[in-house]
């Protein structure tokens, strides 16, 4: 019984992280809630196959990711190359000079933090096709290693790396477009050679 009680307490501490990731996966509050509940139900039922001392957090995220993929038929194995435009390297970094300082009323330290709103960051992730969105979420938001993500998604590590690379660049481009839409960007400030 002790082991089960530990499991319950330990699993509950990950509920907020699982819910936030479920929100970005499903893009919908009701579905996110269902997804986390289903994850906990499956985890509880599969308790016998869980060995104490193994990484419970990774185990729960793996259950949730697979539940999401199966439930929503999210394609993981064969991404459509055309799903994402190819974005140049260091896209956002090379454009930081275009941000109009006069329109950003923040101290230098938290300038970038204030530059993009919570909703813009969430939208930039949620706009990614699932094949890219799930690896980006598992890495950038939940901090799993390439190896852990490869195991969760049953894809090679090299595939994880390339999807992260392309997904992150696409996300940067979206963040830039959002800032442009809000009038924070003056492209005439960009050095033409960039």
């Amino acid at each position: 019984m002790g082991a089960r009680e530990n499991f319950t307490t330990d699993a509950m501490q990950y509920a907020p992280q699982l819910f936030a990731t479920a929100m970005r996966m499903t893009r919908n509050r009701a579905d996110a809630e269902d997804l986390v509940q289903e994850t906990f139900l499956k985890g509880w039922r599969a308790f016998g196959s869980y060995q104490e001392g193994t990484n419970l957090r990774a185990w729960l995220f793996r259950i949730m990711t697979n539940t999401f993929i199966n439930k929503y038929n999210a394609q993981q194995r064969r991404p459509q190359e055309s799903e994402l435009d190819d974005v140049e390297e260091l896209f956002l970094f090379r454009r930081m000079g275009a941000f109009d300082q006069s329109k950003i009323n923040q101290s230098a330290e938290d300038q970038m933090f204030q530059l993009f709103t919570d909703d813009e960051v969430k939208n930039a992730i949620e706009a990614l096709p699932e094949t890219f969105r799930i690896p980006v979420l598992l890495s950038d938001v939940d901090g799993f290693t390439y190896k852990e993500i490869a195991e969760m998604l049953d894809i090679p590590i090299g595939t994880v790396m390339s999807r992260l690379h392309r997904g992150r660049k696409a996300m940067q481009k979206m963040l830039y477009e959002y800032a442009k839409d809000r009038g924070l960007v003056d492209e005439s400030l960009l050095d033409p050679q960039d």
């Binding site: 319950t8 970005r24 809630e33 970038m112 960051v121 969430k122 950038d140």
Partner: peptide
């Protein structure tokens, strides 16, 4: 490095639905 922090922090900033943790406990 800062962009990573921003993405992680903002993407995780989510209020839990009311009563959600209690409903989750019900799963056990």
């Amino acid at each position: 490095s800062e962009l990573r922090t921003i993405i992680k922090t903002k993407a995780q900033n989510e209020d839990l639905p009311k009563g959600f943790l209690d409903r989750l406990l019900g799963c056990f």
